[in-house]
Amino acid sequence: MNTRDIVLIALFAAIIVVLGLLPPITLGFIPVPITAQSLGVMLAGCILGAKRGAAAVLLVLLLVAIGLPVLSGGRGGLAVFAGPTGGYLVGWVFGAFVCGLIAERLVREEQPELSQFLSFLAASVIGGIAVVYLFGMPWLAYMSGKAFLQTAAASLVFLPGDLIKAFVAMLAGRAVLAGYPLLPQRA
């Protein structure tokens, strides 16, 4: 990694922190407020690619662990990892990596707009939602003891909000690719 990569990782981690400072949006048809922070996970993969995207998210989690209140709502410290939803945070790292991996393989700068949109959407949904849930739900289920099915099912209330975020990540990912491409592309 050269110095520019390290700076890009740090700047993107800072963007993810800033996304957590913005007030959460409440949409009428979804029972939970949407915070922009997990959108940052998808964006990290879509814009920086697998390695640098995952590193940016890992850097945010490092800041949380050493006791900086950088998660949305001013949360931070080791207690966040000890809680029932800690698995989602761990899943963020792998989510950003998978999201970046898919975006690197599918997106080409010379592609028509529509296939770029679809590639970014696939990357955000698979990496930013499926992979994150893959880590978050078993952790939540384990922490819940015997009522694991009910709590895992209840966590699905976040799904509509996450789908909206995947859509925003798709649009923003494609816009950044057009304005300032950084995504390492490979066959």
């Binding site: 700047l11 945010v60 800041l63 050493i66």
Partner: peptide, 8 residues
């Protein structure tokens, strides 16, 4: 990197 984030 940690220093850069806190700075920016």
């Amino acid at each position: 990197a940690v220093g850069l984030v806190i700075r920016f």
